[in-house]
Design a protein around this nucleic acid. Sequence first.
DNA 1: TCATTGATGGTCT
DNA 2: GACCATCAATGAG
Length: 183
Amino acid sequence: MPPLPRAFYDRDTITVARELLGKTLIHTVNGVPRQGKIVETEAYLGPHDKAAHSARGRTPRNEVMFGPPGHAYVYFIYGMYFCFNVVTEREGHASAVLIRAIEPLAGITDRTCGPGLLCRALGIGKQQNGLDLLGNELFITEPAKIEHHVIVKRPRIGVDYAGLWARRLLRFYIKGNAFVSKR
DNA sequence: TCATTGATGGTCT
DNA sequence: GACCATCAATGAG
């Protein structure tokens, strides 16, 4: 299956976050594809969103967020984990969707029920920051079989410092899926 | 089951 | 020096 087109990412961030649920994320390491079904996401809407990394302006770390849509924004957090995001909307909008959990499909041996864990399981790290998701190493496709699902909306995790923005329902996950991260 | 804490280090002020 | 879009281990109830 081909990567989702640039136009998929060049849309309203909430729409992208919701539509990424159920899609297949693939990272090929040493010729072996590691595949998972996206089951949980969070939308970060841009510099006006106090919970977004882009809220405090452009820095070396968040530079990719300010670039064109359809690229990987990977950052290092808490001294031991990476988090994987896809950049959305037009260049300069500085918005992104955090992939918080996937359901293993192929090539995965470790747990994937959280943003740090899924990056480790997929082999995503600093080297993948800035990758074009229309390339062949790291990309997202339509699933082989499309399954019906119900989307649950909740406040985002770990952003209590963001005031009212922490209360908005910008976390989305597939209802009943066992691989969604736990409270 | 819930609340608390330690691990661990890059980033920004 | 403080903070952090995390996770696992711990202990109380």
